[in-house]
Structures are given as structure tokens and as C-alpha cells.
């Protein structure tokens, strides 16, 4: 057995990295499958119907909708641009983009199984709150400058 104070060989280091990856492979496969399911049933058209109820509510809507959506960050920009054309406020757009890229319901079980329930709960609650605050601060700062 390799002692912790010994320098591992490069082959051992790769073997360990591959083993670590394989250990988490069922979870990664499950997340990919779940993301594909969400992308099929939750379309950008469906999302646009939730906005336009005032700035405060739009920030909350943007955060919740961003969190349940999934996919590449670039898609969130395209969807947000479409929403912008429909007159949705900057508050909602920023909340939506932020939540899309930092929160994900589909990743929650995987995150909890790797890092523990406590860390996952704290991190996601804080991320949710930070998204609301950043959306408000960013849109307000933008108003000051433009």
C-alpha cells in the first residue's frame, strides 16, 4: 500500500484519478439523463410566460425558472435576449442568467452525494439568496450608470 508521505508515480496518480472518476460515473450519467429529460419537457417558450409581473416578482420568477432550467450557459443568454425583446426587466434577466449558471435542481442529488447534504443545502440556499441580491444590485447599478 502506498504511504501518504511518498511521492506517487505518474501512473499511480492517473490510476487514482481514473478510479475516482469511475466511482462518480453512475451519478454523472444520472445527471446527464435528468438534464436531457428537463430540456425536452421545459422549453424556452414555456419559460417566457412566467415574466412581466413587476420587478420584485420577476427577480423571484427569474431565479426559480433559471434554477429549474438546464443546459449550456450560452442558451441562457439566448433565452434572456428573447425575454429582453419582449420587454422583460433587467432585474429578471440577471436573476434568470445567474440562476441558470449557478443553481440546478438536476444537480442537487449528485452534489449532496459527493459533498454531503449539509454543504449542499447551505450552498444552494446561499446561492439562491445571492442570485436575488446580485440581480437587484446589478440592475440598480446599471440604472445609475445608464
Amino acid at each position: 500500500m502506498e504511504k501518504s508521505n511518498q511521492q506517487p508515480t505518474i501512473a499511480t496518480a492517473f490510476k487514482k484519478a481514473i478510479m475516482g472518476f469511475l466511482t462518480l460515473s453512475p451519478m454523472i450519467l444520472a445527471v446527464i439523463g435528468l438534464v436531457a429529460l428537463f430540456q425536452t419537457y421545459i422549453t424556452p417558450d414555456m419559460l417566457s410566460k412566467f415574466f412581466g409581473h413587476g420587478e420584485g416578482l420577476d427577480i423571484l420568477d427569474g431565479t426559480i425558472i433559471g434554477a429549474i432550467s438546464s443546459g449550456n450557459g450560452a442558451i441562457s443568454y439566448v433565452v434572456a435576449d428573447g425575454l429582453k425583446q419582449q420587454g422583460v426587466s433587467d432585474y429578471a434577466l440577471i436573476a434568470f442568467i445567474m440562476a441558470w449558471t449557478t443553481l440546478s435542481l438536476t444537480h442537487l442529488p449528485a452534489e449532496a452525494s459527493v459533498f454531503g447534504t449539509r454543504f449542499t443545502a447551505y450552498r444552494n440556499i446561499l446561492t439562491f439568496l445571492c442570485t436575488l441580491i446580485i440581480a437587484y444590485l446589478s440592475a440598480t447599478t446599471l440604472r445609475l450608470f445608464l
Binding site: A30, P109, A110, S113, V114
Partner: peptide, 8 residues
């Protein structure tokens, strides 16, 4: 020791 089998 696989992680996330139940989830899969």
C-alpha cells in the same frame, strides 16, 4: 465503491 447508484 460507486456513488449515486440509487440516483441512476
Amino acid at each position: 465503491k460507486f456513488k449515486g447508484l440509487k440516483f441512476l
